[in-house]
Amino acid sequence: MELSEYPDSEMMMMRLADILAGQLKQALLANDRASLAVPGGTTPGPVFDNLCSVDLDWSRVDVMLTDERWVPESSDRSNTALLRRRLLVNRAAAARLIPLYADAATPEEKLEELAAGLEPCLPLSVVLLGMGTDMHTASIFPGADRLDHALNGDDLLVAMRAPGAPEPRITLSAKVLKDAFHRHIVIVGSQKRLALDDARELSAEEAPVSAFLKDCTVHWAET
Rank of each mutant, 00 (worst) to 15 (best):
Met1Arg: 08
Pro99Gly: 13
Thr43Ser: 13
Met160Asn: 00
Glu113Met: 10
Ser173Leu: 10
Glu5His: 08
Glu5Lys: 15
Gln191Ser: 10
Ala165Glu: 10
Ala211Pro: 00
Arg15Asp: 15
Ser59Asn: 15
Ser173His: 02
Val126Thr: 11
Val61Ala: 06
Thr217Leu: 07
Asn79Leu: 01
Gly45Tyr: 02
Ser210Tyr: 09
Ala159Cys: 07
Ala115Gln: 11
Leu122Gly: 00
Leu82Ala: 12
Leu97Tyr: 07
Leu114Thr: 04
Asp18Leu: 14
Thr43Lys: 09
Ala165Met: 01
Gly41Ile: 01
Met14Asn: 06
His136Ile: 08
Pro46Lys: 08
Met1Gly: 15
Ser139Phe: 01
Ala104Cys: 05
Leu82Arg: 04
Gly130Asp: 03
Arg161Gln: 03
Leu28Glu: 03
Ser78Phe: 03
Ala116Gln: 14
Ala165Lys: 03
Thr80Ile: 11
Leu65His: 05
Asp62Ala: 14
Ala221His: 03
Ala27His: 04
His136Ser: 10
Ala21Ile: 09
Asp148Arg: 08
Val188Thr: 15
Pro166Tyr: 00
Leu177Asn: 10
Met14His: 11
Leu213Phe: 11
Lys214Pro: 01
Asp57Ser: 14
Lys25Met: 12
Met135Ser: 12
Leu82His: 06
Leu88Arg: 09
His184Asp: 08
Leu51Trp: 14
Ala92Asp: 09
Leu20Ile: 15
Gln23Asp: 13
Pro107Gly: 05
Ser9Trp: 01
Ala204Ile: 04
Val89Ser: 08
Ala207Tyr: 04
Asp57Tyr: 05
Asp67Pro: 02
Arg96Tyr: 00
Ala37Lys: 03
Leu16Gly: 11
Glu112Gly: 02
Asp155Gln: 13
Tyr6His: 14
Val127Tyr: 06
His182Tyr: 15
Arg91Lys: 15
Thr42Phe: 01
Arg183Trp: 12
Pro123Lys: 05
Arg33Asp: 04
